[in-house]
Amino acid sequence: MNSFSELSNPMQWDIGGKRLNSRLLIGSALYPSPQAMQSAIEASGAEIVTVSLRRQSAGDQAGKTFWDMIKALDCHILPNTAGCHSAKEAITTAHMAREVFETHWIKLEVIGDQYNLQPDPFELVKATEVLVKDGFEVFPYTTDDLVLAQRLVDAGCRILMPWGSPIGSGKGLMNPYNLKAIRMRFPELTLIVDAGIGKPSHAVQALEMGYDGVLLNSAVALSPKPIAMAKAFQSAVKAGIYGYQAGTMPERDLAAPSTPVIGTPFWHQK
């Protein structure tokens, strides 16, 4: 976690060699239209946008049109390896992404199960080891498993992106205990909750527990009002960061009156 005392602006943080002012990373898929995508990303205040690579035939201008719209947003680009099921596929995709998007950042996804899109931990570590050696800044999409987190750190990751819950499920933080454990074990690491965020309150929860940021897509893109929801998330990440900075009160099992009891009318010593 970036130290607040070092930063004049609590929203400011450093990630992958960049200093940013938004704790929100946002995806570019599933919006009702390209214009809605562009407007929602702008409204979110996010400075990192995730993109992907897909097969394209000659003469198909869809990719160019999309890329021109993304470039106009002037955000940092985080390409993903979505759809890859082996380290080999992910490594090749990462290299193609580096050439196309001209960035050494890669959101490394290696899917191990098609039912819940859970990462394959073994292939993920294997791909990370190769890509770090090849000069990539790896943003691994991982589960909330503490030992896997350690293996990824051993492989050279400075950033971890454990899931809140399966991609696109909107179920929020399924296992806060595991997420907190990762935060506590790796206080210096940049941690981002990636996947499963469905509501602004989920983002607040992640940041309140000390996570540095949240990455989401469906929560905004599939809202009936994507632009309004993007603004809601912009506010949510601010609330979470300010709340974490302020520190929360200790939780108690019993009620404790907040109004002073001394001088309470109608009260008599028995």
Partner: peptide, 10 residues
Amino acid sequence: LEIVAPMQGG
């Protein structure tokens, strides 16, 4: 051969 271009992604 795979020939790929930018596309939306999450």
